[in-house]
Nucleic acid binder design. Sequence first.
DNA 1: TTGTATGCGTTATCAA
DNA 2: TTGATAACGCATACAA
Lengths: 344, 344
Amino acid sequence: MSPPTIIDVAHRAGVSPGTVSNALSGKRPVSAATRARIEQAIAELGYAPNFMARGLVNQRSHIIAIVVTEFRDLGFYGYSSTLTGIQQKATKLGYSLMLNFAADPTGREVLPALNGAKKYQADGVIWAVHEIEGNRDWTASLDAAGYPPIVHLHTRPQPHLAVVTIDNRAGARLATGHLIEQGAKTIGIITGPLNWWEAQERLAGWREALLAAGLFADEALVAEGDWLADSGRLAMETLLARNPGLDAVFASNDTMALGALHTAHARGLAVPDDLLLAGFDNTPEAAVYWPPLTSVRQGLRQMGCLAVETLHAIIEEQAGAPPQIQLQPELVVRRSSQKTAAAA
Amino acid sequence: MSPPTIIDVAHRAGVSPGTVSNALSGKRPVSAATRARIEQAIAELGYAPNFMARGLVNQRSHIIAIVVTEFRDLGFYGYSSTLTGIQQKATKLGYSLMLNFAADPTGREVLPALNGAKKYQADGVIWAVHEIEGNRDWTASLDAAGYPPIVHLHTRPQPHLAVVTIDNRAGARLATGHLIEQGAKTIGIITGPLNWWEAQERLAGWREALLAAGLFADEALVAEGDWLADSGRLAMETLLARNPGLDAVFASNDTMALGALHTAHARGLAVPDDLLLAGFDNTPEAAVYWPPLTSVRQGLRQMGCLAVETLHAIIEEQAGAPPQIQLQPELVVRRSSQKTAAAA
DNA sequence: TTGTATGCGTTATCAA
DNA sequence: TTGATAACGCATACAA
């Protein structure tokens, strides 16, 4: 009843288990005749290797553990896109993926997730929890020995960590700079939760772009959201109430931009004629918002790929100092930010 | 350098490995004194059990493999929501999650994904690939022996399979019936790709509701989309062109409804005053569309929970005949479908 | 080119 | 209540 083992195959093929192992791995030569007999036996028995046993002796599980946070987070556009990139590269390199969940994104309770990876002897970990306040502090105090190597996503580059991330600040500069070029003078920002590193970076990018253009980054132009659409709706209300001359808004993600559009519609404000708008993420839906939304494209799939490649290099001990990779986003211009464009 | 083993702990605590194992599992009594020494040794060494070794002897990996399809699919609202439910229940029952990808959603090439689960001796599989044409046919011919038990999602109930699914037809009936109640006479539908089972079901539900109300389900009222927003935009164009009297549309998911709204805006059609609209999924964004979208809520998180519970029962051999669970969706009414409602 | 023996970390059986 | 030993399925060093 239990699945066939390498011993069953050996028995049926009339050879020793070691020979079957060699035939499968190709590490030692096996004669064509016996190889054929072995392959036939494998086919007849429906044998498949047991990776737990193999991992036990090899000290190599071929598992990459991905750590994300619970609840809504997986629904964020970012995760699914990143996961796709991770999956593709992982498959190519022969890794399987294990999904672990950190109980609380803001929490320091990282050990359960980390131990989840350790339990199954994961070869490496991709830490995809967004940096929020001190929730990366554990990296400094963790006794790295005894834990698999970790590649960090969505966090600020730090010399002692392997990090693959996106230049959020540059992205925000791109979007805000574009709004300035379109003639906007009073440009508000809807930020993410400001205890998120990425939200801070996007805010900083907005500020940098304004200063570079000689505009004043008034605090009244900053409204904090929580990444969700409804908070974008409210933040837009706030911005409009506080800034009579508001002529453009940069929303720190597309979903909040959708909320901002809602408020604009409700107030009878025409986008882009009365107000320019840009978002961040370039979700597939952004192109179909009304009006279509200018947004910042992050190379999330590529980031996933690079994370796996980086991790693989570390696992294979081909990496020197912890790699620091920062991807540059690009701006996708659509109608929401172009006053002069004719309606389609 | 290698992580501490149970033998190291035993050595340090001055007991035998078996005793340490018993102390950890609680399967045999251990004296308080030795237990204390063992726990101290564990803490000092930072010992964590090796589940691969444990799984090898127990023939129980405590792994549940989830099979989804590549690319965009994970971005669909459904998967992330379902995954959350799966994760919560799995953690509660002591399972870890492994993520496998079926190369092609329409393909019959399921063995790679299934073997991915088998390689790591997964205790069970949650097959979350949407049913498309014959992509479930393999279930009939698969030699179940040698594979872990499977619970199927997003597929039609079938006696020989364990299935947890949602009554898509009832959901579509709910939405369409509501549009009829609101006074609509000529109700179009934007379907998903019609080789998807769920798309067919939602179409059937629309048809049933129309017939029940004595309305004619004209083929001209059916426009096929591909679940993505842009296809909703185009389908809406088609419906408007073909049906001059069109006064309501049921979109088979919210994303396509967003596309439909886009077209309505572009054509200067007011929703809900000129045209009623309803969607399916009740994504978090639907409440912030302009106007807020009436939609069908599926209990996806609950579905994920139930899938794990069902699988667990089968693994523990507490299940009799393959369970067939069908969840009932509910309608969430918002402004897009209510002609009489005052604007908020 | 192939067979034999040992060990990976753990649990279970048996004896003490 | 505890210790010794075998076994899980596989890969490898060594012998043939």
